[in-house]
Design a protein around this nucleic acid. Structure first.
Lengths: 208, 208
DNA sequence: TGAATTTATTGCGAAACGGTACAAAAATGA
DNA sequence: TCATTTTTGTACCGTTTCGCAATAAATTCA
């Protein structure tokens, strides 16, 4: 992907930076509301260069979110897994999540996936599949973490893993929704902490 | 609004039906993805008639959701308030909510508000304000119901009303998100029941 | 019957849309 | 120096978009 081409005119753009700028446009304007002209201006790439580099609008969005997942989400997930205490792991995870959802200066931009493509998910099959897959990844992540906590005796053996994981996913979905509606970061953080505490209580978590 | 005009050519459209058809278009295509041509075809009204009857795209959407709130949400909310048992009230509420979110035949259409305008909420101030207001109404509804249950001794007096209401709102946001991603009605119903049970357990609800 | 009023229909025009063709520019290799 | 290769920039195509102007149709009142 990043092979340095020996010949030909050297490209003037940085693919990574361009995808980052493109994702910011999508987050600000929504998927349909973002035109190739917007992306062209934001990335400082002419429309044909954009097309040659990444493909059409679908491909640009998918590559932009894939890079974001590599850069931000991966680190966030590792924090969830690496921290042995379930309570601390969840607090750390949601704290970092709120930071991402609150990006955008004065106006929180919400989730790069949920807050951007939900409106298109029914009419656009490609987008619908991406949204479905993203939800599945989040569910799996929480299920794995809850199962590990149960195996570590931080939760009762009778814990309904699916139910607890679904509540954690619901919290994530809700934070994305609230951020997109303009709820500021401190309030999002407060909601996240309160909700994590309530969910752990419901799950019968041991004190730590 | 519905005064029968004594003179002039009688209108051929039914405003109520037209707004219902318009809302279906918005739910299927998303706000930005729905053009006035789409609305014109769906309502069997020429574009100029649409414009004269309801105004521009913002006004059409706002009027369509306002009518939907009167028709469906109002009844749903009354069920939440009128049922004395908190557990039964919540099960009834979310069961009806899942039914609405699952409309659309094979493909669930999700929430007429959350699933339709989230993508536009940052770039479009009118839409942003509407989304913010809709979230606030949902929060207030749950807070009122939880407070009533606490006053009725179905919840401990020390209940954190905000925290419980926020979890219920999170469940609603999550159901909208999952429906929009294609999760079918039985699965949505299962998630709703499991989550309500878990939230009531966390809140320390009395058995009924 | 004919004037007045209200709605419906047709169609226009300027702008924006996604996508692409084509030539100019900037590098390497011979 | 000159051919080759790759990216950039300009310009364009066909379609869709919104909004409105102008005209036709359908009704009531005199």
């Amino acid at each position: 992907m990043t092979e340095k081409s020996a010949r030909g005119r050297p490209r003037q753009y940085d693919a990574k930076a361009a995808l980052g700028a493109a994702l910011m446009e999508f987050r600000r304007r929504g998927y349909t509301g973002t035109s190739l002209d917007h992306l062209s201006e934001a990335t400082n790439m002419a429309r044909p260069s954009l097309y040659a580099a990444f493909g059409d609008k679908h491909a640009i969005y998918l590559k932009a979110t894939a890079q974001h997942a590599e850069d931000s989400i991966e680190r966030l997930n590792r924090a969830l897994i690496d921290e042995p205490s379930l309570a601390k792991a969840l607090d750390g995870y949601f704290s970092a999540l709120v930071a991402i959802y609150s990006e955008g200066g004065d106006r929180p931009l919400g989730c790069p996936v949920l807050s951007v493509i939900t409106g298109e998910a029914v009419a656009d099959p490609v987008i619908g599949a991406e949204l479905f897959a993203a939800l599945g990844r989040t569910d799996a992540r929480f299920r794995d973490r809850i199962a590990a906590a149960r195996d570590d005796n931080q939760l009762p053996h009778a814990t309904n893993i699916d139910a607890v994981a679904e509540m954690l996913a619901a919290l994530q979905h809700s934070l994305a929704q609230r951020a997109r509606a303009g709820t500021a970061r401190p309030e999002l953080g407060r909601i996240a902490r309160n909700s994590v505490a309530l969910i752990l209580k419901a799950a019968g978590a041991a004190r730590d």
